[in-house]
Design a binder for these strands. Structure first.
Lengths: 164, 164
DNA sequence: CCGATACTTGACTAATTTGTCATATTTCGA
DNA sequence: TCGAAATATGACAAATTAGTCAAGTATCGG
């Protein structure tokens, strides 16, 4: 179980934009890359993904750059991670067995399907409540904020089907 | 955020062993492969990983096979996943930046480090309580069991540092 | 002790994910 | 209108992960 590089770096990049005052102001790829110690080309690629996901908007030409398309308070960590790479805890794995059969015999009574399902819900419940404006506080504040979130209620209601 | 193929298939394979009555009896690679619709060679590779992680033991020679090294009740989902592939939500990503610098400037005040840390704790808290004997029940039972686990307490105490 | 069965090992190939490069397009300002 | 500064795009190269192959070692039964 791991987070992809795109998710890690993409979250860092969008947090650079979110931390900007005002958050509607824009920042060039070069600036973001410098802050995050990434190559500008790579950051450019990541930002295109974020743009296609509707989380940032680009301004082209001289004095161009990127800015958030919505205020930090309206963007959740769950959404950012979903845009940067599907969250997939085995749900679709039944379809891609290697070699032999293309049919998942577990379909009727699968031992681990409910596990992936509930675990995804569980994680989503956490990330969906965490917004960018909570993450741009100083480190200690972030920890406090996160811990507060956790202590709300464990799983309020399985409202959303998945981390997509 | 995704689970690796090894984790998915490895968990399925060890559940085959756990479901065996008695759970100390053994099963050949061929049998497991047939049940899970995987190739025997691939299952063999997965089982070697599980053996090296101390979760199963092998019996060589004719009439050989694999068996759990401990009762299903004493093996958690967290342990199985950890043996099959490190659970790594960005903790170590600071070290492997591409290109430019090899030093993480976030070390002092990192915005997403606390996120990965607490999220890992959160997930671990869930998976650590879920044992193989809970997972080998019929599907409906598994869902019920999982839901019960969730409703215990959200985060009892950050006892274990990580999902390793 | 020989052969069949089953696990062991390491090297190899294939697929996916990461990251780079070259080139095109947009915009501003002199 | 031309050049500099910026994003856009698709093809490519590198690294990692997935899965296969072949040749080995252990054990049992006859």
């Amino acid at each position: 179980m791991k987070i992809t590089a795109m998710q890690e770096y993409g979250l860092r990049c969008i947090l650079q934009l979110a931390a900007r005052k005002p958050s509607t102001s824009h920042m060039t790829v070069r600036e973001i890359a410098k802050q995050e110690h990434l190559t500008p080309v790579y950051v450019a690629k990541i930002l295109v993904t974020l743009r296609r996901g509707g989380l940032v908007k680009s301004i082209r030409g001289v004095n161009g750059g990127y800015a958030l398309s919505r205020p930090p308070r309206e963007i959740s960590a769950a959404r950012v991670l979903a845009v940067l790479g599907k969250v997939d805890l085995g749900k679709n794995l039944c379809k891609r067995f290697p070699g032999m059969s293309s049919h998942c015999t577990h379909s009727g009574d699968c031992r681990i399907r409910p596990l992936w399902y509930v675990l995804t819900q569980y994680i989503y419940n956490f990330l969906d409540r965490l917004t960018l404006d909570q993450l741009i506080q100083e480190e200690a504040g972030v920890s406090r904020e996160i811990r507060r979130l956790q202590n709300q209620n464990p799983l309020p209601a399985p409202k959303t089907p998945a981390l997509v």
